[in-house]
Amino acid sequence: MSKADAMAAKVLPLMPEPTPSEPLVEVRDLRIQLRSRDGARLLNVVNGVSFPLHRGRTLGIVGESGCGKSTTALALMGLLPGSARVAGGQVQFAGENLLAKSEKEMRELRGAKISMIFQDPMVALDPLFTIGDQLAEPLERHLKLSGAALRERQVSLLQAVSIPSPETRLGQYPHQMSGGMLQRVVGAIAIACNPALLIADEPTTALDPTAQAQFLDLLARLRDTYQLALIVVTHDFGVTARLCDDVLVMYAGSVVERGPVREIFDHPRHPYTQALLAAIPQAQEDRQGRLRTIEGQPPDLARLPQGCAFAPRCPNVRPKCHELPPPLREMGDGHVASCWRAGEV
């Protein structure tokens, strides 16, 4: 156990090991509709997403902008925008369906049992209040801490996310800190009340490469120390490779492939996953070559094709692909993919 781990373990008592068979989170057939700008149509932005997640494990949700990955994350928090509504499915969390809970009940869970980290740390904190004040808020609200106990907890939380001279930092304002530092503060706020589930939506996209690597390491350490169930929403397979146990690839609101991270990297079954992996810039090989991209445009959710949503951009398309959307099929080893040709490739 490293020094930082030991420090972190001091802050929050380790949770008892969860029973491995029971997932902490079980999303079943989640469907979300979004009212279009003109209000005339309902778009299916999330279309039957399912996955289990155990404590201490990490799920990566990968896809292009607008594929529904962030919407899925917000639905778990109960923070969907007013124009969106849950059209079906369940989100089981510690044995309870979150989608059936009232806003008041969700407020008790948010920040206490389920926390979220957002993309841009420079705007995630209120610029007019000190770090200490914003860190104190969830502690006061959920844990009813005050006085010396509150102060002690604030300091040790900043230590747990490796922020030097925490006493000074508590009195500072967001504009006095760097992006990487602020994302650590956001992380400290997110884990302040010892949550079971942490959702990170593009947590490193706004950071410089050094800060990115440090923050991913921090997330991994927090997950292992507190046995967090971690969901990382990203468009970056590098983040996935570094942090995740399982990957869920989304396209046009649907899951196209899901499985253990090594399986997905070594044997991607869906042509979209294959194309995404091929589009990762390689430092060594193919230096002279051009960046590989995916032909065509991301789909317009208002005009999805009748068959497979990826068919218009798919290099292996067959007539059947234009007729019926392919179901998710078991590929073995917990690997599922929705492609009519998944068995052949």
Binding site: L79, G111, P138, H142, I189
Partner: peptide
Amino acid sequence: SADYIRFLRSKGMS
């Protein structure tokens, strides 16, 4: 509609 308001909501603030 600012991001920090969303983060406050994710903290469970009233």
